[in-house]
Amino acid sequence: MYLLQTEALSYQFRKEETILNNIHLQVPEGSIYGFLGPNGAGKTTTLKLVLGLLRKQKGKVRVFGKDLDLERLSILQQTGALIESPSIYLHLTARENLLLYQRIYQSDPGRISHVLELTGLSQTGNKRCSSFSLGMKQRLAIAVALLHHPRLLILDEPTNGLDPSGIIEMRELLRSLNRNLGITILISSHLLSEIEKLATHTGIIDKGNLVFQGTFSQLMKQQQAACRLFYQTNDNLAAQTFLRLRNIEVELEQDTMILPILPREEIAKINRDLIQEGFDLYQVYTPETSLEQTFMNLINHN
């Protein structure tokens, strides 16, 4: 079951400028869904639409199986959010900020100390938030989002501005919330390495289009399927003619022959045939496909 899904979500700021194009986001229950994309790809706009912060133009948003248009309050009652930079009242203390939201969510007052401890802010005392570091503000914003024990956490670039140890702490916190409390997390980032370490599922958005959605292993498989086999011989043109006569699709690019990826046995047979025919094989290889390369390929193809 998808805890959150969008159907054909599209958005335009101006008529000629499409920000989102037909987005079908599917966030499985219990997952950590990494929403990846370069800056300006449409991540924040999608998350704002999911939370009802932007007026929807086209498409549907369903959370917990409920329609956002019809049951906004019931959805928000079970959702915690952090959109872009932390939203906290700087003239108040951390506890006062939480007390304020505790009233709104009408949650258990005991949760305030719990979330302060969970986010490592229990020692901040009467210090006003204006004197907090960015990392502390970010953690307080997470504490606010966790206050009412949400089923779904929507975090837009929560590690922005954090130092490396802060990023690791944040990652550990989110992982433990997901594993121990079963909270589904939708987290956006433009950093692949960050999402790769944390997420179970991913959606990749570029220029307003969702170019991939699934697990990381699916992503790798998809990319491998698109992989090619590269050959360098002493006479590529003759080798191409030789292989084409055996119904093998071959392209020539400068000093390299490019073949589609084939089963290992078939590759061995081609190699044997080429050598028996008198060709010298200088190199046979498939370029390594790192996740980063896969990500870049998806974005560049879009």
Partner: peptide
């Protein structure tokens, strides 16, 4: 304008309040 000064409109509007 307390929400504008603290950049908190988005948080307040994400709360379950009409």
């Amino acid at each position: 304008q307390v929400e504008v000064r603290n950049n908190t409109w988005k948080q307040l509007h994400s709360a379950p309040l009409p």
